[in-house]
């Protein structure tokens, strides 16, 4: 009996001492967690898409709690309702979210342009692009192998008539496809926009003409017709500045090739 006690008592004492030390330490050295964090994190959708520019929803929530200058309207998938909840949780004023969607800036479908070679390799835009810029006559255009469609977490992109098309109903504006396209053809544009450029061909007008009937020839007619200086031709292709665009559609009406979509 005595031997059992000499074993049990030290173990119990050691256990109690250890427990006491841990309890005291955790009380004395408790790190204050921001009490706002769980509430803020709860507002976010948890898609971890990175559209806000932070590393996942946790990262954005942390930035919101720690730095009050972080805007509360950065969450694109969550949209307006999330931004409202966030500004309530943080006690800041609500700022409207401008809904953004991805857009594939290429209108060169099968009826507008032709293939210059037959490609029978690995079915991926990245692989096809390595081989003389893809099979299409235009090396700037959509390769049509669907790397963006495969990357899209919402399955909002599909290949139609040889080019990728974004379903704007399903698109959450996360921007993953913009980083996937080897030709950097996809960008985020405001959902409420009235006009969109559907070409990114930087060749001179005469060269573009031969490869695709939808190609921007850089004639600058749009530039001259725009009342707000919102469209400019850089490197033989027009670009729209949506912060200035008022949606008058004059550029699209004046475009001789019709590469500005209304």
């Amino acid at each position: 009996m005595n031997e059992i006690l000499t074993a049990v008592i030290p173990i119990v004492i050691i256990g109690l001492v250890c427990a006491a030390v841990l309890v005291i330490a955790s009380k004395l050295m408790a790190v204050k967690e921001d009490e706002k964090f769980p509430a803020v994190r709860g507002c976010l959708p948890g898609a971890n898409c990175g559209a806000c520019g932070f590393a996942g929803c946790d990262g954005y929530a942390k930035a919101l709690c720690e730095d009050s200058s972080t805007p509360a309207n950065l969450c694109v998938p969550g949209g307006e309702s999330t931004a409202k909840q966030l500004s309530e949780a943080l006690g800041v004023e609500f700022a409207e979210v401008e809904a953004q969607v991805a857009f594939v800036h290429c209108g060169g479908d099968c009826s507008k342009t032709q293939d210059k070679v037959e490609y029978e390799g690995f079915s991926s835009c990245a692989a096809a692009n390595l081989l003389f810029g893809g099979k299409g006559a235009c090396t700037y255009g959509c390769l049509g192998m669907g790397d963006c469609a495969a990357a899209c977490p919402q399955n909002a992109i599909y290949i139609k008539n040889g080019i990728a098309v974004v379903d704007e109903e399903d698109c959450i504006g996360c921007g993953i496809c913009t980083r996937t396209c080897p030709n950097h053809l996809i960008s985020l544009v405001p959902q409420k926009r009235k006009v969109t450029m559907t070409c990114r061909n930087k060749d001179k007008g005469a060269v573009t003409r031969k490869t695709c009937s939808n190609g921007c020839i850089g004639c600058k007619k749009c530039e001259k017709s725009c009342p707000r200086d919102a469209i400019h031709v850089y490197e033989n292709v027009a670009e729209i500045d949506y912060s200035k665009c008022i949606g008058c559609k004059l550029c699209a009406k004046n475009c001789p090739v019709g590469c500005i979509e209304m």
């Binding site: 173990i11 250890c18 427990a19």
Partner: peptide, 29 residues
């Protein structure tokens, strides 16, 4: 105290406590 046979259990107990303690201290300082 001739308690050599308690080595394993005592060591596990102490090491576990120690690592927890170190973690708390590191987190704080």
């Amino acid at each position: 105290f001739n308690l050599g046979y308690l080595q394993t259990i005592v060591f596990i107990l102490v090491i576990a406590t120690l690592v927890q303690l170190v973690e708390i201290i590191l987190k704080r300082y």
